[in-house]
């Protein structure tokens, strides 16, 4: 049974991640007064198939100046860590690969490992643009992991558990985004930073660093970075839903549908943010994190704890 669930999740998530690319391209186009890819298949839905076929047939080139082993390893790391994190995502009461009692910690821990792909990719490429992108990526992802971790402490207090299914169940009366609005905002911002998407796409910053840490990648290795990023978006959206928006909870529709619907909504928010915002400078990004998000997330913990204790009386 568990193997079937795992397989379904694995393939399903990869498929959703890939379709997210087409969703993003169509939505961006919609918001930018243009059509986007609309030729392959109905509504251009088969575009991703065409893209995948193309990218698989591309020359898989490793630059002669690169450090081969880490260079090849890097794109695998991002896919592996993101997919591993999905093991604990509670899609519905029955549909979870692994119900860990430290599910939340597992998620934070494993997804943090994703930074290795940026480090390895940036370093092993042996190119200056990649190196700059890699350095930016490390600092950004490590910093924002901190705020992300701190922002969910309030949720854990309210739910009294690290188990994600328990956290969802604890939201039966009230979704946590209302008592934990600050935690939600910080978590989501941190999530954007960790997936390094606009406005936090400094590690790749096209206009400055060409393509940042994956400048030297081509073919399917580049594709894996790409898909990894999108699966990361799905992961952060799913976690936001599980932690703050009642997970699978909702009337009438089956729980799984509710979960996917909500996740879809947040995926769209990711895309909307990308359509709307510019990118801050490196130092501005860090100042924003350490000077604003850190005190805010600490304040959130203190406040939640105080109210929680007072209510328990």
């Amino acid at each position: 049974m568990i193997v079937v669930v795992a397989l379904v999740v694995l393939l399903g998530v990869l498929a959703i991640g890939a379709w997210l690319i087409i969703l993003e391209r169509r939505l961006l186009a919609l918001w930018q007064d243009r059509y986007g890819p609309n030729r392959a298949g109905p509504f251009g839905l088969a575009q991703i198939v065409a893209d995948m076929v193309k990218i698989f047939f591309k020359e898989d080139w490793v630059p002669p100046f690169a450090d081969k082993v880490p260079f090849i390893l890097a794109p695998g790391v991002i896919i592996a860590t993101v997919l591993l994190s999905f093991a604990v995502v509670p899609f519905s009461p029955l549909f979870t690969v692994s119900r860990l009692n430290v599910g939340l910690l597992f998620f934070l821990g494993v997804s943090s490992l994703g930074v290795y792909s940026v480090i390895l990719g940036g370093w092993a490429s042996n190119s200056k643009y990649s190196l700059l992108g890699g350095i930016r990526g490390i600092v950004q992802m490590l910093s924002y992991e901190v705020f992300m971790g701190l922002s969910v402490v309030g949720v854990v207090m309210l739910a009294g558990s690290f188990d994600l299914s328990d956290i969802v169940r604890a939201q039966r009366g009230l979704w946590f985004f209302i008592p934990q609005i600050l935690g939600f905002v910080i978590f989501f911002i941190g999530g954007i930073a960790v997936t390094h998407r606009i406005p936090f796409d400094l590690p790749e910053a096209e206009n400055e660093l060409v393509a940042g840490f994956h400048t030297e990648y081509s073919g399917m290795k580049f594709g894996m970075f790409y898909v990894g990023e999108y699966v990361g978006v799905v992961l952060i959206s799913a976690m936001t839903v599980a932690l703050f928006f009642g997970g699978w909870l909702g009337p009438f529709l089956p729980p799984l549908v509710w979960f996917l619907l909500k996740t879809f909504l947040f995926m769209c928010v990711f895309i909307l943010v990308r359509a709307a915002l510019p990118r801050p400078r490196y130092d501005q990004l860090l100042a924003f994190g350490w000077k604003l998000l850190l005190p805010l997330s600490l304040a959130n913990i203190v406040l939640t704890a105080a109210i929680y204790l007072a209510a328990k009386g």
Partner: peptide, 16 residues
């Protein structure tokens, strides 16, 4: 210029 700051959409509006 908006694109230089990482903004994606204005380019499309303005070219339009």
């Amino acid at each position: 210029f908006a694109q230089d700051t990482g903004m994606m959409s204005p380019t499309f509006y303005m070219f339009n």
